[in-house]
Design a protein around this nucleic acid. Structure first.
Lengths: 336, 336
DNA sequence: TTGAAAGCGGTACCAG
DNA sequence: CTGGTACCGCTTTCAA
């Protein structure tokens, strides 16, 4: 309600002076500033965001667009990411908002609206695909954005932070081999999710290096997908003694399939996931898994995006970070 | 980039005409309209959101502020809620955004910024407390908002949709009693969460009605809290044969405590939760639980908020809906 | 059917 | 140190 003008009138000052006093410009007398801030406080004055944006040409907002195909994604992760990024952005004067959008055509339209309507000052892209139309679009503008994850075949340079899924899955595979496993399967997320490619490659590399034959089943990255994959892999006598899963949710499904087949985790079949969901600590048995430490990732992404908004070049803003391996109860040496 | 003015200049028309042509006013010749829309399309014109907002006095945004205390909440639920509300809002021309905020002082400041800076046109409040300062604040303005959940001791009338936790927990208790259970405990969320009060009241009502003695343990509404509560309840010989939990996450922790005590779910101890998390279908055993159907809830809340923004009275916008009971494998008759 | 012009509420340049 | 004033880009009244 209270605008700069009414505030100025009530003080007998000009809007100019009031504006400057509130924005902390140095060229206002201390006494005036104090009077103004007190009055603003008393009147509960907040600048009209739209007016300010129009004038300053900046929305003071950064946006994470979350693709939301039914139940497919790991939502708590993104809320955690929001938490991690919230503070640096707030400190820099930006509101961090999340918009949900079904993937596909509409998603690109959402990006266009945001960018071309200047509804936001920067974007955080998540859930990358190997060749990602959102990133393609953004690279064609010079709009500031950062990516959690990577792409595989994208021309152009952009800031990202990603976990080293290739190395992480190679290490996990080697870990299983070290325990004595030979028949190790990989239940992979669909190849149209970029992380799936890296994780699979790491698994295959480690298997091949050990002279073992990779066996990959591709499935939806949720519990149902894992369950089906498990039902497919387990019935035979020479079933895998260990299953490396693309995500924790897949792993949950696989563990259930193991039980359904009358087998035991980890005694008959070891299971490893990725994401370290809250539920994974409390599954039976607790799930061995790995994760990209999200707090540091978020902080770094925020830093990068703020730098890009300030005009910094994306050069050198590409970071692949090691995954943290979390040993729990779902892995053990194979039965002899 | 392309503004109304540049567009108008390139067409040799006035901004007035171009604006009206694009907004579908009837008083523009068909030929002009076609020329204008084609040119706008070609130039990739999007109206500057800030300018439009300033002029129209509406942000075309509605906001859900998600309180995010570390790990305490059921985030997938809110993403589902966003999905459910997204379409009705989009159809009405509003962007639905989510902002994460740590509860407490800062949260209220967030609300103030949004409301007084006119950064949004409407708010969705979740995770209500019995006497909720956010709702108190909003009731003091005439700003449009809706609530998922209720309060207990709030003066004033506002739109909400909530699950009937009182009846749901009474029914669940009666269900357990029907199975033959007599020693039924309730692991409740803290009393500063409003839903905890209703659920507890329902449990106590059903117990008392059956002539049984209620036994309530209060704990943090997550797996750790459930685990601790379980460890507290289970060691004695006359431990409860059934535990009704305030949330699924509590139930997960309780189930783990049951296993840790060398007991079996549901054979020795039945467990029931609330929320129907994705993980609950895949726990071992799958968790018996209940839920507020979220799609309909979201649709209704969106409808209410749009009506409020249009100036409708909140009168009659209070809905308490029955919970859906989901019978799974974590409940059984008690051992004799 | 079209155009000129007045703002929406701030910010920032310029002058005093 | 303070005030006048020209915008930011769009919508909308009023006049032609």
């Amino acid at each position: 309600m209270s605008s700069l003008r009414t505030l100025a009138e009530s003080l007998g000052l000009s809007v100019t002076t009031v504006s400057r006093a509130l924005d902390g410009y140095p060229d206002v007398s201390r006494k005036t500033r104090e009077r103004v801030t007190a009055a603003a406080e008393a009147a509960g004055y907040r600048p009209n965001a739209a007016a300010r944006r129009l004038r300053r040409g900046s929305a003071e907002i950064v946006t994470l667009v979350l693709p939301t195909a039914q139940g497919r994604f790991n939502e708590p992760l993104y809320i955690e990411l929001m938490r991690a990024m919230g503070e640096p952005f707030a400190k820099a004067g930006y509101d961090l908002t999340l918009m949900a959008s079904p993937p596909g055509e509409d998603e690109l339209r959402t990006y266009r609206r945001l960018v071309e309507g200047r509804r936001t000052d920067g974007l955080i892209v998540v859930r990358t695909r190997p060749q990602d139309p959102r990133i393609e679009y953004l690279l064609g503008t010079d709009f500031p954005f950062v990516v959690m994850g990577r792409t595989s075949a994208q021309p152009g340079i952009f800031p990202f932070v990603d976990g080293d899924g290739e190395q992480g899955f190679a290490d996990a595979t080697a870990h299983l081999i070290g325990l004595g496993h030979k028949r190790i399967a990989h239940v992979a997320s669909p190849a149209n999710l970029n992380y799936a490619l890296f994780r699979r490659a790491g698994y295959e590399r480690a298997m091949t290096a050990a002279g073992l034959t990779p066996r990959v089943v591709e499935t939806e990255p949720d519990e149902d997908g894992g369950f089906e994959a498990g039902r497919f892999l387990l019935p035979t006598a020479d079933h895998p003694t260990a299953v490396l899963c693309g995500t924790d949710r897949i792993a949950m499904g696989v563990m259930r399939a193991v039980r359904a087949a009358g087998l035991n985790v980890p005694h008959d079949v070891s299971v490893i996931g990725h994401d370290n969901l809250p539920a994974s600590t409390y599954s039976d048995p607790p799930l061995t898994t790995m994760e990209l430490p999200i707090t540091e990732t978020g902080a770094r992404l925020a830093e990068m995006l703020l730098a890009r908004i300030e005009g910094a070049s994306p050069e050198g803003m590409q970071e692949v970070r090691p995954l943290r391996f979390i040993q729990r109860g779902s892995t053990a040496p194979p039965k002899l």
